[in-house]
């Protein structure tokens, strides 16, 4: 039976009617059209569906939508503010931290959570934080460089 819930997504509340078994990933994609939440393995192994729940990266395919009530959900669509890209997004563009683009939203969100906690991460720390985000194009080196560059920029300004 459907439940009426309220999800706080990218800083705005959305009243929704969902089945309790609906995965958060599916809810964000289908009900809120946030297709930047990518589904790949749908088993919590690839990280393409990563979103931030209260700032922490989680696999939205392993989370039920009804379980995300009361939490701040951030998807890739919520990263840019007032038409201005997040420094991480700009760094991924400038440093070619992407190829096919499928892992990119999840990569950037994992990196976002890392930089919030640790503005100047070492390379091993970056690699560790990305271990749950697979990139089959193998762009890891430029992804790491993108995060280092963004870390430098945001760190300097913060």
């Amino acid at each position: 039976m459907k439940q009426t819930i309220n999800l706080s997504v990218n800083g705005k509340d959305w009243p929704l009617e969902v089945e309790p078994h609906m995965a958060l990933s599916e809810c964000l994609r289908e009900d809120l059209a946030l297709t930047g939440v990518r589904i790949s393995c749908n088993q919590g192994h690839c990280g393409a569906c990563t979103v931030l729940l209260d700032g922490e990266p989680v696999n939205s395919c392993l989370t039920l939508a009804v379980d995300a009530v009361g939490k701040q959900i951030t998807t890739i669509e919520g990263l840019a503010r007032d038409g201005k890209l997040d420094p991480l997004q700009q760094a991924f563009i400038d440093h070619h931290g992407l190829q096919c683009g499928y892992c990119t939203p999840g990569m950037i969100l994992s990196a976002k959570a890392l930089l919030e906690e640790n503005p100047h991460p070492t390379e091993p720390e970056i690699r560790e934080s990305l271990a749950g985000n697979l990139c089959r194009c193998g762009s890891y080196q430029k992804i790491i460089q993108s995060i280092q560059a963004a870390g430098g920029e945001t760190g300097g300004g913060a």
Binding site: T50, P57, V58, N59, L62, S110, A113, E128, G132
Partner: peptide, 9 residues
């Protein structure tokens, strides 16, 4: 155990 996203859940 696992990766960051899994450890958070």
């Amino acid at each position: 155990i696992g990766v960051v996203q899994q450890r958070n859940l």
